[in-house]
Each structure stands twice: as structure tokens, then as C-alpha cells.
Design a protein around this nucleic acid. Structure first.
Lengths: 338, 338
DNA sequence: GTGAAAGCGCTAACAT
DNA sequence: ATGTTAGCGCTTTCAC
């Protein structure tokens, strides 16, 4: 391993001179020729700063954590892309951790991740199923934190999407097609984003003077399996809806599959529109009509706010509205048959 | 932040005593009563070891890297699960990095990740599209390395799956159904796993005395889009195949979609069998027949070998064969119509 | 059985 | 313009 003093020895200067030159410190008052010698020596030796030493000295790691419920979905990967791009452009690395694994892996993983000075801050994507107690570990910690998907006043910042707007667009699309019996396949009751999405759905229905019978609203969750169960419940009704809005594209896949199993033809017997776009939506059969939310920007803004928080202490609660949600009409929606 | 000396002060002992007790060092010759006082003090103060200090002192971070081409797919997530479980049970954390982002993000990201002492070792999943020069950065580095999916004699270990066996099973399933005109939708020519999969396909065909016309073999890649392009080429042939084996489930989704676009009914006009299982396969229409490979075990073994490498220096090249590949017959395969 | 002290590689205040 | 030096928090010999 090449250290600063190796470089210093080769360049015939002191370690502090090397440190200053290589980090391009603000007070780098070093002669041009010396600087050149130092840079040459560093290059020739293949010098790389030791991360642990720097972190120990400065109490900063230049690493932020992105904690998510699961990594197995297209939604996560867009968020990651945005967060990573932003982090990278500020010289930060992103450490991804799943809450899934943490809970399975014993209580130790979370404290280990956030309590040992590995991270300068955390981006926490609160999923449909995150338990309040797990959330509190983060909220009560002292690490700079930006919560994604739900708002918690206190010492954490937050970034959310305009979920109500997205759901409203999906619902209005169905209403525009002539549907009057529209069901909701929603997130779990404890889910913040689920509540906002339901709100958007209800808002659009109310504006169109359409009733929302109690049993047209399901809140089983965002997973494919849960979407399937919701569809089964809805289809079993005496007067089933002719269209459904699904609060998450993954659940929509499950609903689609269940519809097929029940012999319902989509979109003839049932139209399906879903929140969030993903490549799986395009490849489903029939391809799913979705509302594309600005997930990359969501991740980017969350990271930007976290870095701001780390570097200046600023705390913001933000709704990402740009670019706006976009309705992508594919083949899973059509006018009602009757 | 609570440090060792804070704990020492509270327990009325020296820092070294605290260090020994809390790490449960082999030579922990400490009185039972003292040990108790130390543990109490640490708990009361909420002591957490400082990661950077420990890393600086010991030149070990207890973090391994998992470097993958993309995180957006079900295959990756199974590998991660296996690797993370194994790592966790040995007290290691897993840092996930995408080569995608690294290449976009400038040359600096790879050296930064592997050259600054952040990681004790790297698990490198060589994807379909990894460029040889990127691979070499890792191969030439001094960090313990286990390569997943391709074998490189030298100072890196390797773990591969029995790709030939899996492809053979998919192919034999099609042959058993009565197909004689079977095409291959394969990985890129430079892909190691692609070569092994093609080998399995050809082996099964040869054993059944079935010809493999040159243009029945495509090598466009594992992505959905590339699978679609491959299908288009195959379907455009004067005498198109009645069945295809797709070397990757993601490409199979693309092929399925393209088939629909061309008006081909699956499995009536064309049977499709694919390598790797995923939830998307089950939710496709028709649900895809696949060969389930032991991906969790793949990740687990790779991590195990890496940790072994780190701790004892042992270097192994391994083929993960247990559990064996499993054919999952769904509805995308049937006897040929003619 | 317990403590003192050196030092991992780096940064930054201070000295020259 | 450049060098000297004191730690950051921890592990680990070595001494008692």
C-alpha cells in the first residue's frame, strides 16, 4: 500500500505538502514546480488515499446509505439511478441496504449500518410494509436523514411524489373512457403513499360525481400476490367494477394474472390502469396502461437534499413534481363493454 | 459519539481492558466482575465501535463488494440474497455497485471503490455485456476477488453455474415434446455464460441427432429488446423453428412480446423455454416454461469462497450444482402444431 | 488480570 | 512556500 509519506519521500517533500497538493486544499500555497513533482510521484507510485484514515480524521466517509424495502423491482432501480448520479457528482458513494435483510438478519444490522460512522447520511425509502418500529430507529438516530415517500416532521427531511396527482390521472383516464364502476387496488392502510394514492383516486371520482362503494376499495398491498388477492375480492362482488386503478404496477401484474385465471378478458371485461411504469408493464399481456412517475428525479432530489443537509444542515420537505406524471396508454384499458 | 475511553472512564478501567472485553478477544483474560462492569458501561452509554478507527488499525473493513452489471433484474436479487446471507453470518456487510454506473460515472469510480481500502474483497458478476478492459481492472487489482459466471485462471477465484446442464434440460424438454426445428436465442458472443449455454443447447440437439442450422443460432444478448430482435430474425426465416430456447428469461420476455406483435401464438405456433426463473416468468402471458437455476446458492457460495479467500488465502474455482437445475413447465411450451 | 503506549494514514493548526 | 506535529479511535504488544 502506497501512503502519503511514500509519495513525500519520492518527491522529497513533507507529507503535509503532499496532502495539500493531492486534495487541492483551499490553502494550497505550494510552488508550481513542487506541486508538479508531487503529482508525478503520486502517479508513478499509484497513490490512493486511504479511506479509513481519512474517515477517522475527518469524521466523514463520503458515503451515503440508501435503505429500501426490496431491491427486486424496477421502481427501486430508477430511484437508485437518480440517487447515485447525484451522489457521484458530489463525490459520494451510495451504500444500498435492504430492510428485508436487516430484519431477517437480526436486530444488529441497522445499528451496525447507521451507528458506526460508516455513513454520512441516509436516504430511507419507506415501503408499503415498513414497520413503524423500524422507521423509528432511523428517525431517532442522529444521522442526517431524508425520508422518501412519507413526511415526518422533526429532524428528518422528506421527499415525496405527487401520488394523488398520478392516481387522479389514472382514474380520470378510466372515467374518460366511460367507466362508472371503478375499483381501487390500494396499498396497505398504514402506508403513507397508499393514503395519498387513495386520496387521488377518490378525488377524481368525486369530481366526476361517481360513487365509490365501500367494497370497491381494497388495501392489500403493492406486491403481485396482493394485487391478485385484491382482484379476486373485487371480481367476486355482486356488481363487480368494470375497471380498476392499481396503486402499484407490481400489484397490477398480479391482478392481471388473477383476471386471466378467473377467465376475465382484459380490457374487454375489465380495464386496468396502474401507478408507476416499468419495463414489465410494457411486456405484460396485454401491455399495461400506467402513469409514469418521475422516479429518477425523485431519487436525485432526495440525494441532493440529503447532501445539502449533510453539508449545510438545511432541512427540507419536498414534493417532486417535475417532470410531471405522464399517462402511458397501452392495451389494458378500453371503454366498458356494457 | 461514545468512544472506548468514555466507556473505560465510566467503568473505571483502561481502554485496553474495554477493547478486549467488547471484542471478546481470544486473550481476554479479564476478571468476571470487571468484564461485567465494562459491559454495563458500554450498554448504558450506547457504545458502538468506530468503524473507521477499527479499519485503519486493522486494515480490514469487514465489507465486501458485489459488483454487478445491473440491479434491475430478478436474477441479481437472488444472487444478492445468497451473498448477503452468507456475508452477514460471518459479520460482513455487502456493498453493491453497478458497473453500469461506474462506466457512466467516469473512470474514477472503480479505483475509488477497490483502491482505497474500503473493501476486503470483491464479488464480480460478469454480465453478458461486460467489457474486457473493465474486467481487467479487477483482475489486475490486488484485492481478493471471486468472479461469478466466468473462469479466469490467475489470482482470482471463480464460481459458475452449470449453464450447459440447464440449457440441456430446456432443450430436451422441447425435444421430448416432439420439436425438431429448435432455435437458440443466445447471449453475446463474448459472454462466457453464453458460450456454455450454447454448448448445452448444441449438446442436447446432437444427442437427439437433430440438426442446428447456422441461422437458427442467434447471439444478440440477454436483454428483452435483444430477445425481441432475435425472435424477429428467427421468425423471418424461410423455414422458421417451431420452438426456441432462450438463454435468459429477460430476453424471453422480449421474444414473447415480439411473437405477439408478429401474430405468432405461443405455444401453438412457437414454443418458448428459457433459462432462469423469476416472478416475471410466472406473470407473463402465457406463463413461461423455464429452468430454475440455483441462484441463491450461487451467491452464497461465491461469498463463502471470497470470505475463505480473505481469511485463509484459499483460491477455488467452483461449479455450483446443488440444488440441481429444475425444469418448471408452464404454458409457453407444447408439442409442435404441424 | 490490567494498564501504558505505540502507531495505523491522514488532516490541519501551527511553526518556520 | 514548506515542514513539524498532535491527534482522530482503535488494537495490540509489552510491562507490571
Amino acid at each position: 500500500m502506497v501512503t502519503l509519506s511514500d509519495v513525500a519521500a519520492r518527491a522529497g517533500v513533507s507529507v503535509s505538502a503532499v496532502s495539500r497538493v493531492l486534495r487541492d486544499a483551499p490553502s494550497t500555497r505550494v510552488g508550481a514546480e513542487t506541486r508538479q513533482r508531487i503529482q508525478d510521484a503520486a502517479r508513478e507510485l499509484g497513490y490512493r488515499p486511504n479511506f479509513a484514515a481519512r474517515a477517522l480524521k475527518s469524521a466523514r466517509t463520503n458515503v451515503i446509505g440508501l435503505v429500501v424495502p426490496v431491491v427486486t423491482n424496477a421502481i427501486f432501480s430508477e430511484i437508485l439511478r437518480g440517487a447515485e448520479e447525484e451522489a457521484q457528482s458530489h463525490g459520494y458513494l451510495v451504500f444500498v441496504a435492504r430492510t428485508e435483510g436487516m430484519i431477517d438478519g437480526g436486530e444488529e444490522t441497522i445499528p451496525r449500518l447507521i451507528g458506526e460512522g460508516r455513513l454520512d447520511g441516509v436516504l430511507l425509502q419507506v415501503g408499503d410494509a415498513m414497520r413503524p418500529e423500524d422507521l423509528h430507529i432511523f428517525l431517532n438516530g442522529s444521522l442526517p436523514l431524508v425520508v422518501m415517500n412519507s413526511v415526518h416532521t422533526g429532524h428528518a427531511g422528506s421527499v415525496i411524489l405527487d401520488d394523488a396527482r398520478g392516481m387522479r390521472m389514472a382514474t380520470e383516464h378510466l372515467i374518460g373512457l366511460g367507466h362508472t364502476h371503478i375499483g381501487l387496488v390500494g396499498g396497505l392502510p398504514r402506508s403513507d403513499s397508499g393514503r395519498r394514492r387513495e386520496e387521488g383516486f377518490r378525488g377524481a371520482m368525486a369530481d366526476a360525481d361517481l360513487p365509490v362503494p365501500e367494497h370497491y376499495v381494497t388495501r392489500l398491498g403493492y406486491e403481485p400476490r396482493q394485487g391478485g388477492a385484491a382482484l379476486r375480492a373485487l371480481a367476486g362482488l355482486a356488481e363487480p367494477p368494470t375497471a380498476i386503478v392499481v396503486a402499484n404496477v407490481n400489484a397490477a401484474h398480479g391482478a392481471l394474472m388473477e383476471a386471466r385465471r378467473l377467465g376475465l378478458s382484459v380490457p374487454h371485461d375489465l380495464s386496468i390502469a396502474a401507478m408507476h411504469d416499468a419495463w414489465t408493464a410494457e411486456n405484460a399481456w396485454p401491455p399495461l396502461t400506467t402513469v409514469r412517475m418521475p422516479l429518477v428525479e425523485f431519487g436525485r432530489q432526495a440525494a441532493r437534499d440529503l447532501l445539502e443537509r449533510i453539508e449545510t444542515g438545511a432541512l427540507v420537505d419536498r414534493v417532486v413534481t417535475d417532470p410531471p406524471p405522464e399517462l402511458i396508454v397501452r392495451e389494458s384499458t378500453a371503454p366498458p363493454a356494457r
